Amino acid sequence: MDRAERDALLVVRAQLGDRQALGELVGQWHDPVWRYTRRMLDGPGVADDISQDAWAAVLKALPALRQPERFAPWLFTIVRRSVIDHLRAKYGPPEPADGDLVDGGEADAVLDRTQVADGLAVLEPREREVLILFYLQDLSLEDCADVLAIPTGTVKSRLFRARRLLRDRMIEKGYTS
């Protein structure tokens, strides 16, 4: 049984009132949710607060989840909304969505997980979140698109741009590709 199937079973059991299944589900996803939130925000204290708010929203909405097999993208969509709400309150209105077009012709450097995690702090939230979801949370392009509420092609172009920016910043720091 893969992770999605196991999660779907736990979701259905939790929807039927099984507190142990709900506890297992939260236990499995608490750390990934907190790590995502921590990487997107400025400090562990803020991540604790936003993660807690996100979990409250998840628990409130869980009975209405109609596709239990899609729990991971659904969960990260809710968590992302909590993070964005916090960032909007902190920084004001979001910037316009430009820069989604792909530059052609550059070869991407291959980065390992450690390098990606180390370099995330230098990126803007928009680039950081697509890298976190795709590389660190191991979501598929389609699941990232669901979480970010954008087309799969836009996810691909954001990944391309984010990898390029990350590579450039890491070369500035002395890492070689």
Results as ranks from 00 to 15, higher is better:
Leu120Ile: 14
Asp112Gln: 06
Arg6Phe: 12
Leu133Val: 10
Phe76Arg: 00
Gly153Leu: 05
Leu139Met: 06
Asp7Thr: 09
Ala162Pro: 03
Leu136Gln: 05
Phe160Met: 07
Gln28Thr: 08
Leu120Met: 11
Gly45Ile: 00
Glu95Ser: 13
Ala57Lys: 14
Leu62Thr: 08
Pro125Val: 00
Glu69Ser: 12
Pro32Tyr: 01
Val83Phe: 00
Ala21Gln: 04
Leu16Ser: 15
Asp85Met: 02
Gly23Asp: 07
Tyr175Ile: 04
Pro68Tyr: 01
Ala4Phe: 12
Glu5Pro: 10
Ala21Pro: 07
Leu165Tyr: 06
Val46Ile: 15
Arg3Met: 10
Val130Asp: 00
His86Met: 12
Gln115Ile: 07
Arg80Pro: 12
Arg13Asn: 11
Val110Asn: 11
Arg163His: 12
Phe160Tyr: 08
Ile171Lys: 12
Val12Ile: 15
Ala54Trp: 02
Arg6Ala: 15
Ile50Lys: 00
Gln20Ala: 09
Val155Ile: 11
Leu62Ala: 07
Lys60Ala: 11
Leu41Ile: 03
Arg19Met: 08
Tyr36Leu: 04
Leu9Ile: 15
Lys90Glu: 15
Ile150Ala: 06
Ile171Asn: 13
Trp29Lys: 11
Leu139Ser: 02
Gly153Cys: 04
Leu159Lys: 03
Pro44Ile: 07
Gly27Trp: 03
Asp103Trp: 13
Gly45Asp: 01
Val155Tyr: 01
Leu166Met: 14
Ala14Asp: 02
Leu141Ser: 09
Gln67Leu: 08
Leu123Pro: 08
Val155Asn: 02
Lys173Cys: 06
Ser157Tyr: 05
Leu139Asp: 00
Glu129Ile: 05
Gln28Tyr: 09
Ile132Val: 14
